[in-house]
């Protein structure tokens, strides 16, 4: 197993230079998420245009997988409506937990860079934290979610 399969250039780049990093103020909705096992914490804030994600930012402290996943997510969901965001979440979730034998599904775009996480079950929670937090923000639950 090659480490480069997990730490692909896209991941390392988004870890070093996370996109949409910060907090939208004012925002229409925000949520905090944490992974108590490793201490990762992040928050997602949104501005909505009806059912569409008009703007999204995230901030927090985490490992490279968690930071890059959040950064890639903000790029991927900007402009999507809630139904499309949920569909993409399902696709990402399916990819992270799928068998390593199957190729990653189509339609992931740059998010396919996260496919290497499948080889490291202990790291799946790092990659999925941002998606759970986004889901919480979309449900306008102003609470902390946990991947534990």
């Amino acid at each position: 197993m090659d480490l480069k399969d997990l730490y692909r250039d896209v991941i390392l780049d988004h870890n070093k230079r996370p996109r949409n990093f910060g907090r939208l103020d004012p925002c229409d909705s925000a949520a905090d998420g944490s992974n108590p096992l490793c201490g990762d914490r992040l928050s997602v804030s949104l501005r909505m245009d009806g059912e569409r994600v008009a703007e999204i930012m995230f901030e927090g402290k985490g490992c490279a997988i968690s930071t890059a996943s959040a950064s890639l997510m903000t790029e991927a969901v900007k402009g999507l409506d809630v139904t499309a965001v949920n569909a993409l979440h399902q696709l990402v979730h399916g990819t992270l937990t799928s068998s390593t034998d199957s190729p990653p599904p189509a339609g992931l775009g740059k998010l396919a860079a996260l496919a290497g996480v499948r080889e490291y079950p202990a790291r799946v929670k790092c990659a999925s934290l941002c998606w759970h937090t986004l889901e919480a923000a979309l449900e306008r639950r102003q609470s902390t979610v946990s991947t534990e």
């Binding site: 480490l3 997990l6 730490y7 490793c38 985490g62 490992c63 490279a64 490291y120 202990a122 790291r123």
Partner: peptide, 22 residues
């Protein structure tokens, strides 16, 4: 520049078992 969690994974790939976390 390397989060402990990433460090743990890379060390594991090199056969080194250390604890990472709180």
């Amino acid at each position: 520049g390397v989060h402990p969690h990433d460090l743990g994974t890379i060390l594991d790939a090199e056969g080194v078992a250390v604890r990472t976390g709180h």
